[in-house]
């Protein structure tokens, strides 16, 4: 599925669906262990000081670096 935007441009507080993971395989595998894979639901909670985002995935809050956010394609859920 084609993504509407990168996670870096996604709105805060709205449900999103992860459509595309274009990170390095290392990052992809780490994301996978947190449940962040294509088709996963998430909500952005806030921007962070380092330019990244904090995402709510299931019951877990996952901090994502700016570079990782640029490589995740999402659409509104």
């Amino acid at each position: 599925m084609a993504a509407d935007m990168t996670l870096l441009r996604a709105p805060i507080g709205l449900p999103l669906v992860l459509d595309e993971v274009s990170t390095s395989p290392v990052a992809a595998r780490r994301l996978l262990t947190f449940g962040l894979r294509e088709g996963a639901s998430l909500t952005l909670l806030q921007r962070t000081a380092s330019g990244g985002r904090i995402a709510l995935v299931g019951e877990s809050r996952i901090a994502l670096g700016k570079d990782v956010c640029k490589q995740l394609g999402v659409s509104r859920g």
């Binding site: 390095s24 290392v26 780490r30 962040l36 904090i54 877990s60 994502l64 670096g65 990782v68």
Partner: peptide
């Protein structure tokens, strides 16, 4: 290359 993906 180690990305920032951090459980809070």
């Amino acid at each position: 290359e180690d990305p920032l993906v951090l459980d809070l």
